[in-house]
Write a protein that binds this DNA or RNA. Structure first.
Lengths: 220, 220
DNA sequence: CCCTTAATGGGAGGCTGGTTCCGTTAAGAT
DNA sequence: ATCTTAACGGAACCAGCCTCCCATTAAGGG
């Protein structure tokens, strides 16, 4: 990854002809640049969906995005770079949390959202790829963590409201509870590669809820 | 991956000039062959520990194992193949479960074992690689699942004993409870890449235990 | 101990993924 | 509208990964 060192260049002469082309796409994000990014990220998702991360190839992406491969190499540098940017892109599209009126329902909605996402052939493949890429690259790992931070922050109010209603102890850490719901699903998805059934989802909810009521997720 | 079909061998007739070199290393696993495997798997672990999965390279492995690269290509085929075999190797080395006399202590011992493993620089890197490889390759995913099936089976008695002592409801699914303990740790390890602190470990235990007492893991 | 042949090992060659060069296009400023 | 230059794109170039060929070594059976 070499997208990072633009500061180190050109400490030299007078005119300082602009920190030329330090990070393509950030200085002049006009219509064309944006369109290229969109095309490339879409192509990346497609590729991940049907060939997986190991087969992700810059040349192929450039071709199927209808973009010069030089551009892809310059702006993203590597397959991991593509996935990382895809992740940033995904983090921007937020979808609102549920509000069913009860914590059980809300958590169930969350668990089912996770399940549906991971079960969907396209999205499931994308998440597998992203997780694999994060295991290989620090920068990508940060992007993945940021993505989930965003997501969990959106759902946190669900728990806060429930605490106000007395469904879980006051002082329950919302993020902690939400992670407890997701964790078993992701465990199966990444480690044991089991099918994510309705029973598994439901159990994740009831177990997390039981623990929460028992005060296992009290913020300290 | 072609390491699996050795059973198909030699069900055959008289002469049949042997299914020559069907799967190198399975037909004549003499001293040299075994030594080569050991050297290669060790080299693989070393490489994973200090450069990670993305940089895993067959030629380099061959060189650092002091083995011909042809051999590595022939027997393992790809980086994923190496990791898969490493996983099979790891599954063979079992270490016994704890027995502290109480379920809380046993589960804590389990959680701390997981934590220590994932925290260890060498083993942590290996597990990251294995998870990434499993995300890329079906065969590797199966090997990973098998590894954990073995591990969990070793620890299952811990829960069975506890149920007999009345610490959790009769009919509690041991594997389900054990997975509930590990899941939050693996979630952090693979998804959010957070540090696995003692607090996280302890919370995983208490949460799983609370859920279990509440009957969330009853076998149906 | 000898024989057969599985398995290893070195090296040459091709392919594919990645880099660089330089001309072209169009974003954004005046 | 015009100009500057960021960003794109084509194509040649380079390198490292993988494969194939064949000679060599040593298991395992007699």
């Amino acid at each position: 990854m070499d997208l990072m060192e633009q500061e180190t260049r050109l400490t030299e002469s007078q005119p300082v002809p602009h920190d030329t082309a330090a990070t393509p796409g950030t200085l002049r994000p006009g219509g064309r640049t944006a369109k290229v990014r969109r095309a490339v990220l879409d192509a990346t998702q497609d590729a991940l969906a049907d060939t997986g991360f190991h087969a992700l190839n810059m040349d192929r992406i450039a071709a199927s995005a209808g973009v010069g491969k030089t551009t892809v190499y310059r702006r993203w540098g590597s397959p991991v770079g593509l996935v990382t940017d895809l992740l940033h892109d995904m983090a921007e599209q937020s979808l609102p949390a549920a509000d069913t009126g009860g914590l059980t329902g809300d958590l169930r909605a969350n668990a089912e959202l996770v399940r549906d996402t991971l079960t969907d052939p396209r999205m499931g493949a994308v998440f597998r790829a992203v997780i694999a890429a994060a295991a290989c690259d620090e920068e990508c790992a940060r992007a993945l963590a940021a993505f989930y931070r965003t997501r969990l922050a959106e759902w946190a109010p669900v728990v806060t409201r429930a605490a106000a209603r007395g469904e879980v102890p006051e002082g329950t850490d919302p993020v902690e509870l939400l992670r407890a719901v997701s964790a078993p699903l992701y465990y199966r998805f990444t480690i044991t590669h089991e099918e994510l059934t309705g029973a598994v989802t439901e159990r994740a909810v009831t177990a997390a809820l039981a623990a929460a009521r028992d005060g296992a997720f009290l913020r300290e």
